[in-house]
Structures are given as C-alpha cells and as structure tokens.
C-alpha cells in the first residue's frame, strides 16, 4: 500500500543507469589527456550533484515539517538526508580515486570543490548522532529539522567561502569558460545525471515506504495487543510516525 509504482520506477532507473554506463563504456571517446580513467567522471559528478541536491531537498522538507508539524515531513527529510549521505560517501571515494589518477594524489587541499564537499559531509555526518542523542521523539524531529535547514543553507555558502580562498583547479565542465564538453560526452553526462537522480528517488521511495510500513505494522501490533496508548520506548535515530 505504500510502495505504489516502485516497480516501474526501479525498472526505469535500472534501464537509464545501464544505458548511461553502456554509453560511457562503448560510445563516448576517451578523454585526450587522461584517457580511460576520466570515465569515472560520469559516475562521480552526477553522484556529487545529486548528493548536494539531496541535502538541500532535506532542508526544504524540514521547512515543511516546521510549518505543518506533520511527522511525515520529518521522515521525508530524514530519508533524503540519509540517502544523500550515502551518495556523498560514494562521491568522496570516487573523487579520491579520480584525483589519484589525474593529479597523482589521493587528496588535494588546494582543491576547493573537494574540500567544501568534505566539510559538508562532516557536517551531515553529525546529523544521525545528533538525532540519536535526543530521546524525546517530538523534540528529536523539531531539532533535526532546525539542523537540516541550517545545514541546507550552509551548503552553498560554504562552497562560496572555500572557493574564494583558493585557486581553481577543479574543472568546470558545464560552463563555456572551463572547456565545454563536446556533444557526445555532454549527452552521456546528462543521461548519467538523470539516471543518478532516478536512483536517488528510487532509494528514497524504498526507504520511505519501508519506514512507513514498519511503523504501520508496529502500530497495528500494538492495537492488537491492546496497549496502543504506550509510547514507543526503543531509542532510535530514525523518526517514527
């Protein structure tokens, strides 16, 4: 009852992602300077963009939660941030591999995009511990929303501040000044972004419906055993409905 349309969505995600990677491996040319390793770009950049958007979307859901006080918005915000954190870990790992291959180092401190991404990741890494440290569920939801809004606003500001402090070495590929992508690479890249967005939405929907189903079941169970007035006692970082 909660997972309506999930199958279609999963199939669409699978097809887009497989299509994107088929294009990456069999159609797009090797980049002249870096060769084959540059193809990690089609995984790394969409993942980074979708992760950052996921953080901001989590903040927008949190605003909705504070306005309406519906627990479902807190759950949505939590799930969006949760999936975005997972994608952020993937971004850091793939970025590190790419940096090693392209620049010869696993990590470069004079690289604003890398550093700002790490800062944002470190900030969001405290989201779950913070939730876990607040026992009262209603308070946990409110405080997590405040955190999500502040952190969501922090994402763009942090990128601006870190970028101001350093020279640009990270390639800007989608604007015209930073070496615009040739047509076939651009098309593949756009398909990869769409695929990654779909992956985010699919994972988001899966986790959301799992959480909803689980809390529905436990409320039914409590109703059956006749103690539905009792509060949930188990401590958890995840919100309950």
């Amino acid at each position: 009852m909660y997972g309506k349309g999930l199958r279609t969505l999963s199939v669409a995600t699978l097809i887009t992602l497989i299509g994107a990677f088929a294009l990456v491996f069999f159609w797009t040319p090797n980049e002249a300077d870096q060769g084959f390793v540059q193809k990690i770009f089609y995984l790394h950049v969409p993942m980074a963009i979708v992760a950052l958007c996921g953080f901001v979307v989590g903040g927008i859901f949190a605003i909705q939660h504070l306005r309406t006080r519906e627990p479902i918005w807190d759950l949505r915000s939590y799930v969006a941030i949760h999936i975005a954190i997972i994608l952020a870990v993937g971004t850091l790992i793939t970025g590190s591999i790419w940096a090693r291959a392209a620049w010869g180092h696993w990590w470069l401190w004079d690289e604003p995009t890398l550093v700002s991404f790490l800062i944002v990741f470190l900030l969001y890494a405290t989201y779950t511990p913070m939730r876990f440290a607040i026992e009262d569920r209603e308070r946990q939801a409110r405080y997590a929303s405040v955190f999500a809004i502040v952190a969501g606003a922090f994402v763009p500001l942090n990128f601006a501040a870190v970028r101001a402090s350093q020279e640009n070495t990270h390639p800007r590929v989608l604007n015209t000044t930073g070496g615009a992508l040739p047509g076939d690479m651009r098309l593949t890249f756009l398909i990869a972004i769409v695929g990654m967005t779909l992956l985010f939405i699919t994972l988001y929907r899966f986790e959301l419906s799992t959480k909803q189903t689980r809390s529905h079941i436990s409320s039914l169970k409590r109703k059956l055993s006749g103690d539905d007035d009792l509060p949930v006692l188990r401590r958890s970082a995840a919100p309950t409905l």
Binding site: V120, L123, F154
Partner: peptide, 8 residues
C-alpha cells in the same frame, strides 16, 4: 556540529 559550520 559547530566546527564544520564555522569553517567559513
């Protein structure tokens, strides 16, 4: 929470 937020 404060340390990453204060990096700027």
């Amino acid at each position: 929470i404060c340390l990453p937020l204060l990096i700027p």
